[in-house]
Each structure stands twice: as C-alpha cells, then as structure tokens.
Design a protein around this nucleic acid. Sequence first.
RNA 1: GGGGGGUUAGCUCAGCGGUAGAGCGCCUGCUUUACACGCAGGAUGUCGCAGGUUCGAAACCUGCACCCCCCACCA
Length: 898
Amino acid sequence: MSRDNPQPLPGGGESVETVADESSARLDKTFDPAHFEERWYRTWESEGRFQPVGPPGSPRFVMVIPPPNVTGRLHIGHAFGRTLEDILARWKRMLGYRVLWVPGTDHAGIATQMVVEKELAKQGIDRHELGRQKFIERVWAWKRDAKDNIQSQIRRLGCSLDWTRERFTLDPDLSAAVRHAFVRLYEEGLIYRGRYVVNWCPRCETAVSDLEVVHKEVDGWLYRIRYDVVGVPSGAVVATTRPETMLGDTALAIHPEDPRTAKFRGKTAILPIVGRELPVIEDGILVDREFGTGIVKVTPAHDANDFAVGERHGLPQVVVIGPDGKMTAEAGEYAGLDRFEARKEIVKRLEKENRLLGTDPHDYSLGRCQRCDTVIEPYLSTQWFVKVGPLAEPAIRAVEMGEVRFVPEVWTKTYFEWMRNIHDWCISRQLWWGHRIPAFTCANGHLTVSEGDPSACSTCGSPELEQDPDVLDTWFSSQLWPFSVFGWPKDTEDLREFYPTDVLVTAYDILFFWVARMIMAGIHFTGSAPFSTVHIHGLMRLAGEKMSKTRGNVIDPLVAISEFGADALRFTYASSATSGTTVTLERERLSGSRNFATKLWNAARFTLAQLEGKPRAETFEGISLSMPDRWILSRLSRTAADVNRHLAAFRFDEAAASLYGFLWHELCDGYLEMTKPVLSGREGDERARETVRGVLYRSLADSLALLHPLMPFLTEEIWEKLTHRSGTLVVSPYPTGDPALEDLQAEVAIETLRGLVTRVRNFRSERRVPPTEPVRMWIDPQTGDPVASDALRRLEPLLRHLARLSDLTFGPPPAEAQRDVVSGVAVGLTLPPGAAGTDRTRVEKTLAQLEREVGELTAKLRNPAFLDKAPADVVEKTRRRLGELQERRAALGSIASE
RNA sequence: GGGGGGUUAGCUCAGCGGUAGAGCGCCUGCUUUACACGCAGGAUGUCGCAGGUUCGAAACCUGCACCCCCCACCA
C-alpha cells in the first residue's frame, strides 16, 4: 500500500466521501490507513476541534509542546513524546476538559547556526564572507522549511495542537519577553558581566555553558617537568596533563603546611623555554598535599582553578591559546601552532633540555563540545552570567512542597542533586543566530542595559551606542516558553487563563537544560511554577542501538507511518512507554500494532455487517441479557476503568495492554464468536438478536472511544460508519466505566465456560482429533461454583457450539472418560470407540506437576506458623487451591492408572 | 570522586510481599463465511550471585558481580 500519494481531497472539513446510504455503513475490505488519516486530520482541524472549547474558567487541561529545534526534521524520539502528549490531550478533551495544547518551535541558536553553516559549506561559502545580516537571512530561510517539515510531521502523527497559537522563540513578542527577562534579572543583580575562564569551543568559536560540555574519560598522560628554582639546586618538579599551557604559567603553588615543599617558600622559579620568573605562592585551596609532588603550576588564563588562584594572589593572566585553538603571539616561537601540535613540540623541547622527568599514564576526564565534539578549551573572556543560586532556592522548594511533581518519581532526586549544586550559568554566545543581548556600550565605555533600543547612554548621554554583538544561550528563551507563548510579560487574557500549565512531557536528557530552568524562571517571573506535573519518559532507541544524529541512524517517523500507519506507530509508542530510561522501538512491535489495527478494522466490518439496517436494543435496562452479553459489558466497563486509571498514572503501556487484551482476546476471540449462533439464527429469537446487536454496538462504540486517544484515525473512521456522524469521536465522551454493568457472576460463568472450551480443544489437540470427529462431554452438575454451574446449563448450546461437541451431558462421566477438573467443575471427555488413546506422557507430566504443587501446599498448611500468622483470606485461598489441585489430581489419575 | 538505574521465557519488556506475565519469536494443527496482518492448541523461566528479614521474597535489607546513565574545577 502506497502512502506516498494520499488521495487529493477537496478542502474544508465536511469533505467526507459521499456514498449512497446502503454502503455508507461498510468498511473497505482491505484496511489502508492512507485512505483516511490525512482526511481526518483536516476535518478535525477545520472544525476547530483542537481549540479550547467551553467557557473560560471551566476545568481546563493545558500543555505547551517542548518546542522542537528548527534544525531539520523530527526523529522517532520526538514523535514519541508528542504522541504521549496527544494521548493526554485527546483523553482530557473527551473527558470534557477545556484542552489547550500549544505548538511551536525553538530557534536553537548554536544547533541551527551549525546546520546552516554546514549547508553553506557544501556550496563553498563561509558565513564570514556573507556577513552577519546575509547569513541570518539564510538561517531564516532554513527555518521556514524546517518549520514546515516539522509541522507536517506532527500533523501526520495526529497531534491535536491548536495551530492558531503556534509560536517560535524568535517571534517579536517572544523576543520582547526575552529582553524583558534579561533586563529584569540584570536590574535585580542576577545577571552580571565579567571576565572569567569559561568553556570555549575553538571550532564553534563561542563560549558554552557547563551543561554543553560532555565529559569523557580518556587514557592520558601526566608529564612531570622540572622547573629551575632560584636558590634550590634540585629545582621543582610539577606535573601536568597539558604541557602546552605552561607557556602561560605565572606562578608555582605549594601548600602552606606541606613540609615536603617548605623549601620553596618565597622562592622564585624560572619558567622553562620562556625564561619568565614565577613566584612560588602558597595556596591551601588549590594544592592538595596528597597528590603528586605537592607543587602545582599556575596558569590563570587557561584553567578555571588557576584563574581563581590568580585572582586571590593578583597574578598576571597570560593568554597563550587563542579563540581558534591556535597558540597566540604570547607563545613566542609556537605562535600559530595548533594547541595539540604545540603540546608535541613542547614535550620534544623539554625532553631535549632534560626537563621532562617522566610521563605517567593518567586517566582524566576530557570535556568536549556537545555539538561538534571538539575538545573544550578553558578560555579567558568577557561573558554574561546568570547568578543561579537565588533562583534555585524557590525552585527546589516548589518540588519539595509538591507544587511540581515528577513522574516517575525517581527523577525528583536527580533534580535535587543538580539544583543543590548549581553553578552560575554562562548565557552569552559568540554566535549570530539568536536573541541579541540587550546591552549597549557607549563611546566612553559605559554600559546601558535596556528593554528597548536606547538612544543615548544611560550614564553619560552619549548617543554613540553599540549593541553587544553576542546572542543569548538558546535555553535562555526556552526557559520562558510556558508563559512567553501566552504573551508574558503583558498581562494577557491567555496568560491568566492558561498559565500555569498542567503537564509537561519530555525526555530526561533536558531535565537540567530546560525543565529545571523553566521551574526557576516560572517561579521568579510569574510567581508560579509553570506546570504541576512533569512526565519524564525514556530516550527512544531503535532496536538496540542508541539513536543520535551524529550516528546517522535517525529515522523519520513518516517512514514508519507510511509503512504501518500513524495509528500503529502511536500504539507502538504507547505500549513501549515503560518507565525505564531507554525505550526500544522494535520493528516487530510496529507490525504487531499494525496487526492490531487490522484486527479492529475487521471486527468492525463484522459488527457493521451485523447491524446494517437491523433493529438493535438501544438500552439494556429492563431487557434480559444473556450471560455472554452481561460478561462483555462487565469486561468493557472494567476495561474503561482500568484505562482511565492507567492514563491518570501516565502508564501508557498498561493502558495500551488493557485495550489490546480486551479488544482482541475478549471482544474478538470471545464475544464475537459467542454471538455467531444467535446472529446466524441457529440459536435464540429475534429479541435475542436485537439485544446482541445492541451489545455489539455498545461494545464497539465504547472500544473506539477508549482507543481513540491512542489510535485516533482508525477509530474516527470506524466511528463515522458506526454512528453515521462525521468527525465527532474526537469530542465524544470518554467512557470511564459503569458500575451498573459490572457483573462478577457473569464473569465467573463465562470464564468457566471459556475454560471448558479450551479444555475440549486441548483434548482434541493432544489426541490429534480433527474437528469433524465427535467428542462427548460430561459435566458433573454437583461441582464448581453453584452460580456458574447453573449458568452452564443455560449455556449448553453455546458450549456445544464453541467446543464443537457431539454431545453434552450433565451428569457423572462414565469410567472410560478422560476426567479433569476445570475451574472447579468436574468434567469427562470421550472419543468414539477406536479413536486414539490417552496421551500418557502429557497426562503424566501434568500429574507430576500437580503432585509437586499438592506437596508444597500441604506442607504450607501443616505449618503452624503459616496458619497462625498469615491473613485468614490467604489461608483460606490456599486451602481452596489445594482442594482443587487434589480434585484434579484424582480426576487425571483415574485415567493415568488405567 | 559522587549520584542514579538495570540484571525476569530465545528477543524486547511488565510485575515489585501471597499460585511467574505480555508482545514478538518458536512448535503442532486449521478453507471454523470479520480477519492467514488470521483461528485453535502447545512448549519455554535455579526471576544475576551469596547471605539476611518474613509464616511466605522475583519483589524488602546487606554484600558481590556485570551492564548502562548522569553529575564533578584534583594538577
């Protein structure tokens, strides 16, 4: 089935296929989701189904989409999260909530800039040739395409987002929110500018935050180098993993209380190669007495620790590695060399000068750029920072007080760990794509930070102002997303009505990048946490391998949709959504979901064919329902209750499993087969048929409704044929279970019936009896649950039909019968004379197992401690079970001992 | 260095104090008029290892082993 050319359809929502009445209730014989998926999406959207309905102030359910980056297309992991959100949105909508789910995209500063740079590089263009203005225009063009792609992908998935409220982090109003937030934090002293050693990517040529540095353990070397010290003939031996930085050394440091290094106190060392004099300083914070030689070289411009030491001791900062990762003029003869080349050269030189005393294997963690994997360089530069501590405190409290809760709960601890050890956040980026920092410098060097573009310096009034060329970390704007989409900082109606939101769904990889910062920003700027529940799902893996863009194994959800259908992909997501940190997407599971969709389709075809043009019971009150009717309605009600419970607990996997089990194994395998004798006219009267039709209708209708959040397209398509109403399932009431329909007696009776049927089939199978061969069955009416036994008499025709019995007798079985006990009911089965005999090995195997279990339970019941301490119901249950096992053993034993 | 998670059927995973489960795969039958993307039946688990708590442990506790994440400014 080709999904590439969806049927062209006339625009507008009412565009449903116009077919004559007679066949309008029929479904195509073959199930092809391509025939209706896109059509239904257009219908829903054009009818405004995704916009909040109901009066403002009525119970609402609000989510904002985690805005996808406009770097390219969505992968299978994004589609996973959006599917979970859509399940919640559709579920809540059907429950009658005023649902709003806000769509949008993120400009994703560094990521998008890199993608476009790469694109340009293919054409041999460097961004610097284009210049800032022209380059940004190119990025905007890229953004438009990417946004369109993402939007169409999300639509194909079926996500019920209110597209009339779509936002982009660089939209004018969202940009205004960013400037407002920046200025406010600046004025509160929570944003500051300063010259510090920051994480610098020499390839991206920008500063990055701590979170954007990925640490990996490497097998490295520790170089031991001898520095001459005036007045100490032996010199000082220092150890370093980065010899190239020694050119920037401006001191040696010792611990003030370390006797080993006391002789260096107050001395002056000579920096090898360079010849610079280095004071020996004493610093108890930097120097660990336990480690190495007890002497540390201090390089304030190339190490964050050394920088702090330099500040404490007023040391000069000598920058020897430039922003491009090449040695600077300060590096003398090494100027222009790449930092790693320089390391080799310097090591060679030290060896030659006999200063390299040794290289020891040394494992350490090396930071790399999250985006390009380049080794991060600690680099001294002027940057903007957020002082995070004061913001973190209330955000920690909000989670402690339960104002925000994580599901699953394990993530709470991770959140606390990070928040309680939080560091200031470097927010300036030396990029072109993003929000320009609203800071201006005048000709006299004064700084003006302003929400609007200022016309004059706030200090000296100079009109010559230059805006800071840097942009903000993309997460600075993302953290405002849950309220900036509603118009903050303006006091808009939307903000009042839809903020704070209810649920945020995201993967754990952006817990710190985004979730934690949203909580901080939300509380700080609006006074409320931006959501009450955060559902954290695992990262999507594809059949065992980790999925990442760099590995190139990113799969476009559209590929999966075209092969299996959107509903199948969604159902697979739901049923795979276990609480672990990784979620595996298996091809086999996709085809399983597709099969499930087909199953439902065919069950619906059967049902529709039965209902077509015939009367059915509209209500079940005051009419007599058969045991199977009562059973399926009871199971339907319980399933509805289960599904609601599971969705409320974010257990999408359990919800999917409940629906799968009910629809396939109870409705299809069970009830549909039970109705056939009645529907075909072989059993029952017209009134019974009307009742069955009514139950079928109700079962299918409720199943469709229950399944709709998971499989919206298919269910809506069938719903239309079933109810003759177009596009209404999306807003139909969600079944929550009807206690009046729950019927324990019917469930016990039918389960017993099904057990008996299975026993007969199993009997045939083990004797290799073809279905045409007659099998006789006896049921001992004295045994089993009295209600069930009584019901079985009335179910006799059904039992005969399902088990294909030639004869069924209520009475003690003859001696030659194969006896057994099923759900407490004693039965006997016989074959016509001359048929194959008992399968001894099988019976004996079962007997052996029974023997073992009987032994275990007997011992348990002989144990006084058990009788004394276990709850009475457990003891009673054990007794009953032992009784059943013994009965079964006796029944089976009678034939085994023949 | 700190923290978290995992180890259950061939595979992917539920279960988290009272008889070991699902889906897929596997084996055996099947023109049972909705469905072979199906129907029916079946096999398969010292629940990582060792102790402990308990009448009772896959589940709780303590070690151990192996895997996977995250955080971290020890030269």
